[in-house]
Design a protein around this nucleic acid. Sequence first.
RNA 1: GGGCAAUUAGCUCAGUUGGUUAGAGCGCGGCAUUGACAUUGCCGAGGUCAGAGGUUCAACUCCUCUAUUGCCCACCA
Length: 898
Amino acid sequence: MKELPKAYEPRKYEDKIYERWEKSGLFNPDVCVEKGVADKKAKPFSIVLPPPNVTGTLHLGQALMLSVQDLLVRYHRMKSDKTLWVPGTDHAAIATQTKVEKLLIQQGVKDPRAELGREKFLKEVNKFAQESHDIIVNQCRKMGASLDWTREAFTLDEQRNLAVRTMFKMMYDDGLIYRGHRIVNWCPRCHSTLADDEVEYKAQAGKLYTFRYADDFPFAISTTRPETKLGDTAVAVNPNDERYKKYIGKVFEVKKFAGGPDLKIKVIASEDVDTDFGTGALGVTPAHSFADYEMAQKNKLLVIKVIDEDGKITKEAGKHYKGFTVLEARARVLENLRELNLLEKEEDVSNNLSVCYRCESPVEPIPSKQWFIDVNKKFRIKNEELRIKGLKVNSEVTLKQLMSVAVKNGQIEIIPDRFNKTYFHWIDNLRDWCISRQIWYGHQIPVWYKGEEIFVDVEAPKGDGWAQDPDTLDTWFSSGLWTFSTLGWPDKTDDLKNFHPTSVMETGYDILFFWVARMILMTTYALGDIPFEKVYLHGLVRDEQGRKMSKSLGNAIDPLDMIREYGADAVRLSLLIGTSPGNDMKLSVEKIAGFRNFTNKLWNICRFMLMNIGKDVILTPTQSGEESLSKTLADKWILNRLRAVINIVTENIEKFNFSYAGERLRDFTWGDLADWYLEVAKIEGDKSEILNYILSVILRLWHPFMPFVTEQIWQDIYGKEKMLMVEKWPEKIKSLVDSSLIGMTDFDYARNIIFQLRSLRAEYKIEPTKKINVAISAGAKEQILKDNKEMIVKMAKIDNLIIGKEVKKPINAVTFFEPPCVTVFMDLAGSVDLVKEKERLKKEIEQTEKYVEIQKKKLANKEFVANAPAEIVEKEQQKLSECEAKLGKLKNQLKSLK
RNA sequence: GGGCAAUUAGCUCAGUUGGUUAGAGCGCGGCAUUGACAUUGCCGAGGUCAGAGGUUCAACUCCUCUAUUGCCCACCA
């Protein structure tokens, strides 16, 4: 029999183990079927990995996501499901391009895009992306992620590009994608549009200025952005506002506003105008505000663009302003207004500045011609195999409705469910999605122009003179296809048939809208099916003080450093235990170190068990027949505990309560098994079979949580032919013995006595040299003590135990000193605690009796039974029988105490 | 402005559909130790479960209000 080294050193084993796993091919479900690990007809279980961006290295958020998903995947693989976990990476358009631009600028290229041109620039980006990809993929391996690398995908590879083009064409033909001149969010630094949810808001101290357009303008307006007023074409007032009613419909001409352009200001009415804000009159700038644009549409106002794509003032604002930046222009407008004595008031206000979520530069709403997805347009459902409940083929729906139905009808379950509300709220407020981006890195829009002609198709048009739209698609457009594009769509592949819809989508709640919602949109539209059955949202990983981890704060924990120092298993446990879905978690190095201690503990538990199993026994993992293994009270006890823990762990993994499952398993392993059972085993001896059984069960239970150390132990014990990764998950045992049955409570009773005996020396200040005899009278429980006398004596570290009738002097818990021995007399049958216990039981019985009475009356009430829904009556009935059973149990307990 | 969540031991958090005496890890104090493990074991201190009301035989758990903190959405120019 082999022996394990004294301490577990993750670094020595992890890479080798991963290599063996990968080489075995068993990450691939097809190989599992081939090798008989999973049945061909087995239930499929599939997850598609949320693709990490190719912009950097693995961070803790991704470590968390890999831990959770690998836990699920390993669990299902061990349950013999046909289990697939598809890896991939995301090209992350703007993010990657921005990063490469920064790097090039650092290298001395002043304006990378202008200097290199599209082709050369993209070459640089691709080079960077490839390097970054290699790093991150390798880091996923370090975490132990059992991803099927043979199916790896990239959001920007050939297959995915085909999917994107196909999708674009489909939506275009359905009239869902259109090109329009609209107000869009524009980032002057990225030089691109942004989707609504790519805009973030930062609270800022600002100023609210109140001024008149001109001396002869009848009233003043208020604004925080005076520079945009160069493009005003109207003033909106509330139609009920007595002050301004008379002006509605009138047009005022303003000559050289603030030394700049001539304006024609029409006074219009709008219910949305708050009469109490500022002067109650709102300057309307149709070109640079979403709300104003809408008003302009309604009132047929001119749209004058005064800010351009560089964030500079256009010539429309006149020579006096042309070419200035927004901030410069603001100062200039104010200066002019002051000179003209038009500025009436300046107030400090806090307002929200819109910034780009990637580069944090201020975002400008500007009018621009872009591609949009229309979320409100009705179209006919054409999918032949429509699998969304509540919809019919050929009926008319909007994309919004599709997204909403799939969740509302319960086909997609979001965990935790409170995010349902957020999801629906988001859909309600959703506007058309601007999908074109003026960046180079991404899927180029499959649209070609020749003069006035437009051509939209999957492939480029034949013939000369066609030029493809230079813009690329929003990165979320391609990510939205991820669950099915990775499985081969638009081809009708076996993978698609077998593994779609996927079982679980596991990701952070921060991209519920960005990504999860878009996947639902794209999938329901393209396939007429849901993308996944369950959405499990994890929280953000924060530092000890609850701050976001970031490089600039210097509080970021690098998962790879942690893996090197404490092992991947410790990192995984620290991310899985003590966390709950949808809630942020705080992580510290100490916590990871704590779990490193546990991996080592498990190692040593196994090491010890191995030493006690006996050197000549050839071990094979066992799964059944444990009944015959229990010989002593302690055996019975530990097997009962083990059964309970198998059930708890299994049930809670199924319910996505990974933290609880792990905690209970740890409590069992450390508390029950190591601290108690193994100590007893030292005394009782001859435990080969039962230890072998327990060992093979706990290793399997732990494997999804900490795959490396468990696999290493497994192979050391059972040989390299056997791979724990594909061993069968322990069966749930349905007929679990009730915890109140003798096997459990009796050992707990004995354990209790041992606790008391152990503290005798301290309590009575007995010198270490003296021997202790204990005389116990314990009433009804005396038989237990007699049966387990030897074990108790040894565990309690006393010298002799005299039980029951053997006690000559009936004395209540006093000591009798008799050098060189000490005899302690204990009367446990009449201890104070028992009196308290009786009182407690009586009270409880009283309460329960009352309840039973009430319940009985309720159920005797014919009116209630006849009118209430059957479910409720049944539930009440159940409650009653439960309580009656409990009452019986309590009475028995009370009896046994007397 | 609208919404969501959190508030339990010094710290980080569990507490599974209301039901025995509210738990764990870390930290703290004490004791132990030569062969599984100092990356250890045992014992202990420490909680009016944020506050107030309500429902109930029974509330950390359900309801209402209040306070504090965090997040999301919208946005008033």
